[in-house]
Design a protein around this nucleic acid. Structure first.
Lengths: 166, 166
DNA sequence: TATTGTTATACTCTATAACTATA
DNA sequence: TATAGTTATAGAGTATAACAATA
């Protein structure tokens, strides 16, 4: 193929990039406009909700955010009153992070809406197509794992092995 | 579902976001480390290669970059000697952008490598799976088109209708 | 010494508005 | 008036290194 025949529209990384950007933009209407949350903040909130206490490290290990990004998001969320930080009693280097009632309430409000969006986007998909989509994306991740230059994937937050579709 | 059961790992926008980021990172090794090109610059180069002359508007209309982003990328690429700008004779508001020999050479070097990466990532996919993947991504784009809040999709650079897989 | 979390810094990308010059 | 392109600016996101406190 000559390079003047190369078509960006058929190039998978471009396709995914644009698709992901569009989807994020749409989603940010849910948690951004209504609650002023950024993407990292939303990821942190969602992850902290999984357990009573969570350290910065725990979050960093799961949600594809760098440590400083987590730290900043947590600081901002504390300022907004959605979570509280306290020094862990077991290990004074660790920070215990827990949601406040406000934080839980905001999350209980946002999460269903986010799921509705996801469901709507997949509404035209049959169960099989849905399974196929997740399986194909998973396969692409597997391929990327072979390259040391691609950033490593995080383990699932629930500890389950990958590839089991919902 | 309670919000403390919500799992980011199974959430499509998150999946796509991480996948796209990983893929972009890998790709940027090809055009970034070797030639110092950013993603917008690579998109512009690739698009300009399609015809002899191209205006900023033409690029903006096709490659999901805002006008200022295109303008900046073009300015930088001219400084690097990969393209030249000149005022259009027909309409003095327009800028004619064309690749230099260097630009063509760089592109002829990068494009095959980018395609090799894409091919490798899809190497475990059968022809049908490949078709499925593109079709499913296309369907997601179609769904997003229904939301005014999702940014609009650009027309294909080659003018062909969407959904015809390579 | 190693690890947790914070701070500082820098760079990329994006989004918007304001500006100019041409039409 | 409308359009093409540039400039300015601000915000989000990301990546890295350096640092203080603790283990």
């Amino acid at each position: 193929m000559k390079s003047n025949e190369f078509n960006l529209d058929d190039f998978l990384p471009y396709q995914l990039s644009v698709l992901s950007a569009r989807m994020n933009r749409l989603l940010s209407k849910v948690y951004g406009e209504q609650y002023g949350l950024s993407i990292p903040e939303w990821r942190v909130l969602v992850h902290v909700a999984r357990r009573e206490k969570m350290s910065v490290r725990d979050i960093h290990k799961c949600v594809n955010l760098e440590k400083p990004a987590v730290s900043r998001a947590v600081t901002k969320l504390e300022a907004t009153g959605l979570l509280i930080k306290s020094t862990s009693e077991d290990d004074h280097r660790l920070v215990d992070i827990e949601l406040t009632k406000d934080g839980i309430e905001v999350l209980n409000n946002i999460t269903p809406k986010a799921l509705v969006y996801e469901k709507e986007l997949l509404s035209s998909f049959s169960t099989e197509e849905n399974t196929q989509l997740y399986a194909l994306l998973e396969r692409l991740h597997d391929e990327l794992d072979k390259y040391p230059d691609a950033m490593p994937r995080k383990p699932r937050a629930d500890g389950r092995p990958r590839g089991l579709v919902k």
